[in-house]
């Protein structure tokens, strides 16, 4: 997808209709243009209409309602910034955001490291086996959060769960992994890592394959080891991919809420109450929606700023051209 193969009509030096104008009358040319407008709008109408109703309207509506005290059956009463002030003063919400960040700090690096190692492995094996490995690692990605939750709850089960049987081999006592306040959040990270591993691995693999083999051949001539090649060639050349995966993985992890919703419902002692789950529960229990919406908007701002921060910090180092 280099610039040269793209043929955007707008960027072309001569717009298409002028080309046609060489063989047609100027009067006809404007007619074609008007007709082409109608055709374009007809083709764009469905997507613009759907996005307006189901994305743009909700966004504007969310911003509007966050300044109002409103339930489904009453006229909205303007309250200024009070919803936001209430959210910021709500310790449960602040703690849930901190918990979401902690969750992401565990999930994302593990995903990146395992994904990187596995992508290196896949790259180094031959075609047929590589396909088997790629397909296997991608399969968890297509499994739903609900099914993953159901399976992992039983894996963590106190009685007869696989994990307890496994740690029992090392003489460790049985744990209620999801019921114990100390281990619950950690236990949730495993299915989150499992579900997200495949896509990250394959994106990294795609990036690795794009690195010209001549770089490695030159390094081989100098007798470089695998570690040297990885740290001096592969990782620096893949920094944009890491950056993308880091930000995408980070926002996804902080916003995770299907897993805690199905596996623990936020418990025990709110230890798995991630921010989106908190907002969602609040929305379901409180008919005055302004507060929940303000919390959602605040979370969006926090996530956006942190992502921008990660981007700035990592991108400020001089980028290597790949």
């Amino acid at each position: 997808m280099t610039q040269t193969v793209q043929a955007p009509p707008g960027a072309a030096t001569v717009p298409p209709r002028v080309r046609r104008g060489r063989v047609k009358q100027p009067r006809v040319r404007t007619g074609v243009n008007a007709r082409s407008n109608v055709m374009a709008y007809a083709m764009l109408a469905p997507i613009v209409l759907l996005l307006t109703i189901f994305v743009v309207w909700p966004v504007i509506y969310a911003i509007y309602l966050s300044f109002y005290n409103w339930s489904f059956y009453t006229p909205p009463i303007p309250v200024g910034w009070r919803n936001y002030v209430n959210v910021l003063g709500d310790r449960t919400f602040i703690q849930s955001v901190g918990r979401g960040l902690l969750f992401a700090v565990i999930v994302v690096p593990v995903q990146l490291i395992i994904g990187f190692l596995f992508a290196s492995l896949v790259k180094s094996v031959s075609g047929k086996l590589a396909t088997v490995l790629k397909v296997s690692i991608y399969i968890p990605t297509i499994i739903s959060g609900v099914i993953a939750s159901i399976v992992f709850v039983l894996i963590y089960n106190y009685q007869g769960g696989i994990l307890n049987a496994f740690v029992g081999l090392f003489g460790i006592e049985k744990q209620a992994w999801l019921g114990n306040a100390e281990t619950a959040l950690g236990a949730l990270t495993v299915p989150a890592i499992w579900l997200g591993l495949g896509i990250g691995t394959l994106i990294m693999l795609a990036g690795m394959v794009d690195i010209p083999p001549s770089y490695y051949e030159a390094a081989d001539l100098d007798g470089a080891t695998w570690f040297q090649k990885t740290f001096y060639i592969t990782i620096p050349l893949m920094r944009n991919i890491f950056l993308y995966l880091l930000i995408a993985g980070f926002t996804a992890a902080v916003q995770q809420f299907e897993l805690p919703l199905v596996m623990t419902d936020g418990g025990p002692l709110e230890r798995t109450l991630l921010p989106n789950l908190y907002i969602f529960q609040h929305f379901r229990n409180d008919t005055y929606v302004g507060y929940s919406i303000a919390a959602a908007i605040l979370l969006m701002i926090v996530l956006g700023s942190i992502s921008a921060g990660i981007f700035r910090v990592l991108n400020s180092e001089k980028a290597v051209d790949g």
Partner: peptide, 15 residues
């Protein structure tokens, strides 16, 4: 636009 920002008002809209 992240999903959660519009999830709640999308529900209001479809209602």
């Amino acid at each position: 636009i992240p999903g959660m920002a519009i999830l709640l008002t999308s529900f209001v809209v479809v209602t």
